[in-house]
Design a protein around this nucleic acid. Structure first.
Length: 277
DNA sequence: CTCCTGTCCTGCCGGC
DNA sequence: TGCCGGCAGGACAGGA
């Protein structure tokens, strides 16, 4: 799934094309994704003007002029494709949700695996919503810092890689960027979170931020089915130093150390056993 | 609490 | 060429 950089890229693409526009109609093409589409969603959106876009964790938040928000999560395989006023949308498989704008443009949510979700609620209800209430800090904000991490990690035995993928600890870091950040920080992903020293948490904070910033700049990563809203590929995958590189020589330590692949919590982890301690 | 596992769903890739 | 198992970016629920 799209991790933070991909969601940020999609959100920016939607903001540029849709902000300020009026919704002429919406169509819900199946009853559910991971959760059911909100009851009467098409009717609730019709005629509304889109006033703003933001992102919280891996959720895209579209603000409407009636005080409600439309919240989109892309799950593992979700994409948003934008069509200009002169482009024709012809339904392809897994096009589950479409927003038609007054000027003829449209935005299409396509999600083969249907792990994504679409929610509609009053803007004020968002922070208290079950899915949002326990989210941790944004990694690019100040409250994501070494001392807070160390405090939360105290006595925790979960591997540090799973710890930083926990959305209650910090949001937006998924499997790929967890691998990349720990590689850059030089931390062994299997270390129990509670054993890390403050300087090591500082390195992790620095690395998470650097990796995410660089990925956003590159328009995210393009794995199997992720695309930017204009259909273009992101470029960050070419900059992966560890993810997907099992068996290759580690580019960070010289010599002949090879990137290893292990499984943690059912997810693949790529790391260099020589320089990640 | 913390932890660990199973689960949702489809598509793609490599091996035989 | 075709079939099949394994694996994929997330995050929940539920049980130990």
């Amino acid at each position: 799934m799209p991790e933070l950089p991909e969601v940020e890229t999609v959100m920016r693409g939607m903001a540029g094309a849709l902000c300020g526009q009026q919704i002429a109609a919406a169509s819900v093409r199946r009853k559910d994704l991971r959760v059911p589409f909100p009851v009467g969603l098409a009717r609730k959106l019709s005629g509304r003007r889109i006033t703003a876009f933001s992102r919280r964790a891996k959720y895209i938040v579209m603000s409407l002029d009636d005080g409600y928000v439309l919240v989109i999560h892309l799950g593992m395989s979700g994409r948003v494709r934008l069509y200009g006023p002169d482009e024709i949308w012809a339904a392809t498989p897994h096009d589950h949700f479409v927003i038609h704008l007054a000027d003829g443009a449209c935005a299409v949510l396509n999600d083969p695996r249907r792990f994504g979700m679409v929610l509609h609620m009053k803007a004020g209800a968002l922070p208290a919503h079950k899915l949002f209430a326990s989210l941790g800090p944004e990694p690019l904000e100040k409250d994501f810092n070494a001392s807070a991490l160390m405090q939360m990690a105290a006595r925790r035995i979960v591997p540090v890689k799973q710890f930083i993928m926990d959305q209650r600890i910090v949001v937006g870091v998924g499997n790929i960027y967890a691998c990349e950040a720990l590689f850059q920080a030089g931390i062994d992903p299997a270390r129990a979170a509670g054993t890390l020293k403050i300087d090591e948490w500082k390195e992790i904070v620095r690395a998470v931020r650097a990796v995410l910033r660089r990925a956003i700049k590159a328009g995210g990563s393009s794995l199997r089915d992720y695309r930017q809203t204009d259909g273009a590929l992101g470029y960050f995958q070419h900059q992966f130093k560890a993810y997907g590189r099992a068996g290759e020589i580690c580019g960070a330590c010289g010599g002949d150390a090879k990137i290893m692949r292990i499984v943690q919590g059912g997810r693949a982890t790529f790391y260099c056993p020589r320089h990640q301690k």
